[in-house]
Design a protein around this nucleic acid. Structure first.
Lengths: 222, 222, 222, 222
DNA sequence: ACAAACGGGACCACCCGTTCGT
DNA sequence: ACGAACGGGTGGTCCCGTTTGT
C-alpha cells in the first residue's frame, strides 16, 4: 500500500465524503462552477466541515485531484502487477482497461484532472501542479511498461518510452474531451485502437489495421 | 469567403471588440471565471453594449466560438487552397501549421473550443453544440484531405478518413491540454510528429521514425 | 363622443399599440415588473417609438390608465344612455354588466387602475392622481344614477349617493383583488349580489335575500 | 398561542429584523420595487444574512406575509376571546377595531397582503397562495363569528356566513385600496359603516341608517 | 469536529433613458 | 416617426470565507 492510498484510507469519513462529493460535482459542472455549498450539500455536511478540513476551495480541489489520481492508479496499475507477463501484454491489458472504461454506458467518460487542468492551469499554479503530478504519475506508469517492453522486444523504430507515454496520454485526454460534445461517444474507443496500433507498429515496424479490436501481437509480426 | 467569415466581417466594431475580448479572457481564465464586466473592460465598452448584442453570456460565448473557429479556418484551410498539390503534401503543410503554432513563444498554445467544451459540455447544450460544430468543421477539413489522399495514394492499411481525422484532432486537443500544465511545453510538437508518422504509416504500411521533423515519405528515408 | 374617446381614436397607430400592449403587460405582471422593452416587444415596435411618444414609463402609464378608463366607460356608461329608463333599472343594468364581466372565463377579472394604485400610489403622485381620476369618473357615473334614483324613488334610509358609489366601487375593486388569489373566482359575483341587495335595501328599507340573482325590486318582494 | 405565532417569536433577531424591514418597505413601495439591498439597509444587516435566511426574495416575501398575518390576527382575534359575549357584539368590536385602524393618522391604512396579491398573484403561485392563506384566515375568523351569531340570533334574511365574511373582507381590502389615492382617506370608515349596517340588516331584515357610527342593534331601532 | 450565522463582494441579467441616424 | 446602438446603474442571486458557538 502506497503512501497516497494510506492517506486516502486514513481520511476521516466526513473529509472523504467531501472529496468524493467534490469529484462528482466538478465532473458535472467544472471547477469554477462547483460551489462550496453545493459540494457540502452533495456530501451531506455543512460549510463548517468543509473549511475545517480545507483552508480554501483550491485546497479541497488539490485533495480531490489526489484522490482521483489514487482511484485511477487503483484501476491502471494492476496491469503491471503480474511481473511474469510480457510488457506488451501489459500494454494490451492497459488498453483493455481504458476501452472498458470508455464503453461503459451513461455520461461520456471524463477525467477530473483534464477538466481542472483546462480550466485552472493559467490561474492557479497550485492546481496546475496538482494536475501535472497526476499526468506525470500516469506517464511514469506507462513509460515504465514501454521501457520494459523495449528491453524485451527491441523495436524496429526507436522511440523514447516516456515520449510515447505522453502521446498516449494526450490521445486519452483528447478523446475524452472530444467525446463530451459528441452525440455518439465511440470516438474514444476508436482513438484508443489507433493508438494501440501505432504503439505496436513502433515495435513491429509495420502497421496492422487498427479497427479490428484487441488484435494480439503475432510472432511473425515483429 | 464563407457565410461565417462574412458575418464576422460584417460585425459592428463594438460587437467585434466584445467577441475578441471574450476570446482573450476565456483563454486566460476559462468560461465560468470570465466575468461579463471584465470582458467589457477588456473591450473598452460598457455592459449596456454587451447585453445589447448578446442576450446572455452563453450567447456571447457561442459567438466567440464561431469567431474562434473562423480564425482557425483562416489558418488551417489555406493548406487546401492549392488544388494542384498532392493531398499528402497538404497534410504535411497542415502539420507544419500546427507545429508552427505550437512553437510560438509565450503561453502554451491553447484552444478556446477545447476549453469551453471541457467546462460547459455537461451544463449547457448550446455551448456543447457550438463546440461540437467547430470540432466537426476541423474534422471535415482534414477528413477531406485524407479522403483525397486515399484516392491518389492507395493506402497499405485501409482506414476511414473521418475516423483518422478525429484521431488527429484528439491528439491536437489532448496535446494542448497537457501542455498547459507542463513546464516545458514541447509535448505538443512531439505528439504531432508521432501523429504525422502514424498517418504516413497508414499509407506506406511502415513506420518511419517520428522524431525527424516534417520528413516527407521516401523509401530511402529510414 | 367624449373628448377622451376622441383622443383615443386620434392616437397614431403605433402609440395606440403601445398603450394597449402596456395595459396587457401591466395586467399580467404589475407596473414595476412591466419592462419598457417587453411592452415594446408586445407592441411590435422598438424603444425608439416608445420614448418618442412618452417621455417616461410613468408617462406611458398615465396614458394607459386613461385608455383603460375610456374602455371602462365605453362598457359602463351605456347603462345611462336610455334616459327614459328608471334609474334603479339602470343600476340593475350596471350590476348585470359587472357580473357579466366577472363571469367571463379565463383569468380572473382584474382592473389596471386598482393594480396600479396599489403598487404606485405612495411612490408616484402622477400615477396616484391618474388612478384617482379613473376612480372618480366611475363614482361620478354611479353617483349620478343613484342621485337620480333618489329623486324618483325616495329612499327609506337616507344616504349620500356619492358615498354609496364609493362603497360600490370598493366592493368592486376589493372583489377583483381577492379573486386574484382564489381558486374559484366566483367571489366577485356573490359580492356584487350582496352589494346590489344592500343598495336596494337603502331604497326599500328591507333586505331581500341577495343570493337570487338580478332579482328586480317588486312590492311583494320585501 | 398558535404554531405560527410561536414560529414568529422563535425567529432569530436578524431574521425578524429582515421580515419587519421587508414589511415596511413593501408597504411603502410595493413588492417588485422593494429591493433586497434596501430591505437589508432598513434592517441594518447585509445581503449575506438575507440569503442565509431566505433562499429568494419571494421566500422572504412569504415569510413577511405570514408575519403580517400573525400581526393582524393579534389585533383581530381578541374580539373573539371573550366567549360570554354575544357574537354580534363581537362583530361590533371587530368593526371598532377596523375603524380604529382606519382613523389612525399618518399614511392611509394599507395591507401588505392586498398589495402583494395585486402585484404578484399572476406571476408567482407561491406568493399567491401565501396571500390567499392570509385572506382565508381572516375569513375563517369572521365567518366563525357570523356562524355563531346565526345560531344565537336567527337572521331574517338567510345567508352563508363565509360568503358574507368574504364580502366584508372585500370591502375592507377595496376600501384600503381606494384610500391610497384619495386626498381625504375617510372612505374606509364610511365603507365599514355601510358594511356594518348591511350585516345588521341581514339579522334584522331592516336597514338602519349606516352613518351613525357603531349603532347597536335594538328592536326599536328601525 | 462540526453547525449556524453572517460579511461583503462579486456574479449575470436587465433596467430605463439617451443619442444619433435616417 | 421610428430604429439601433449604447450608457451607466441596479436588480436578485450566489459566492467564498470568517466567526461564533457548541
Amino acid at each position: 500500500m502506497t503512501k497516497t492510498e494510506e492517506q486516502a484510507n486514513e481520511m476521516p469519513a466526513t473529509k472523504r465524503k467531501l472529496v468524493e462529493a467534490m469529484i462528482r460535482i466538478v465532473l458535472e459542472r467544472g471547477f469554477a462552477s462547483a460551489g462550496v455549498e453545493q459540494i457540502c450539500a452533495e456530501a451531506g455536511v455543512t460549510k463548517g466541515a468543509f473549511f475545517h478540513y480545507f483552508k480554501s476551495k483550491e485546497d479541497a480541489g488539490r485533495a480531490a485531484l489526489v484522490a482521483w489520481g489514487a482511484l485511477g492508479m487503483s484501476i491502471y496499475s494492476p496491469v503491471r502487477n503480474d511481473p511474469s507477463q510480457d510488457p506488451l501484454e501489459q500494454m494490451d491489458a492497459l488498453f483493455d482497461v481504458m476501452i472498458g472504461l470508455a464503453e461503459r454506458g451513461g455520461d461520456p467518460l471524463c477525467c477530473m484532472v483534464g477538466m481542472t487542468a483546462q480550466e485552472t492551469a493559467r490561474m492557479s499554479s497550485g492546481l496546475r501542479e496538482a494536475c501535472d503530478a497526476q499526468f506525470v504519475a500516469w506517464v511514469e506508469l506507462v513509460g515504465g511498461i514501454l521501457a520494459d517492453a523495449k528491453r524485451v522486444h527491441p523495436p524496429r523504430v526507436d522511440f523514447d518510452p516516456e515520449e510515447v507515454a505522453w502521446l498516449l496520454h494526450s490521445v486519452w485526454q483528447g478523446s475524452m474531451l472530444i467525446a463530451k460534445t459528441r452525440p455518439d461517444s465511440t470516438v474514444i474507443v476508436r482513438n484508443l485502437q489507433h493508438a494501440q496500433a501505432y504503439m505496436k507498429a513502433l515495435f513491429s515496424g509495420r502497421l496492422s489495421t487498427p479497427s479490428c479490436k484487441v488484435e494480439p501481437i503475432s510472432p511473425a509480426d515483429c
